[in-house]
Amino acid sequence: MRIAAEHLIDGVVRTLVEAVLPDVASPFARGQLYAAVDALRNLRDRIEPRTDQAEEESASAVAALERAVAALATAAPAVADRLRAALEAAPAAPPPARTAAVRAVLVDALEAIATLPAEVAQAARRPLAEHLGAQALRDVAPLKPSMLGEISRG
């Protein structure tokens, strides 16, 4: 996720206090709203990012990159060597830092492969594409159904 949980909670609190509360007339509802704000304020410092998702993504991406490097070893050894070195340089921990580093190698690999002859590129791109597809599914899996309709309708 691109917005830190603490920052998101701060934003929710701010919206509740500044944009919602002024339009709430019922004393009971106002009390409940203040209780929600109080709960959120105390929740914000008790949240730790999950590391299992980052670890799973890193493992999948590294496996894909290793397959891509193997596919490039003969036809594009310089690219293969560069990607292998970048992978080795990725920090082993903490998990979010490792994931960020591996993602950067993945982006580099995709752009480097695009410069290669089509038959070489295709073999190297395949494992990366398969990882991206699987990762897209993993990223969506924990998300709740969108409330965009309700948000738009008000």
Partner: peptide, 25 residues
């Protein structure tokens, strides 16, 4: 604006399907 953080993965999934990542790209 903040809820787009939760919408973005759905878009990336549509992108993955559109570009056939599941079939190797």
């Amino acid at each position: 604006m903040a809820i787009f953080d939760h919408q973005l993965p759905f878009l990336l999934l549509i992108l993955a399907m559109t570009l056939d990542f599941f079939g190797g790209g």
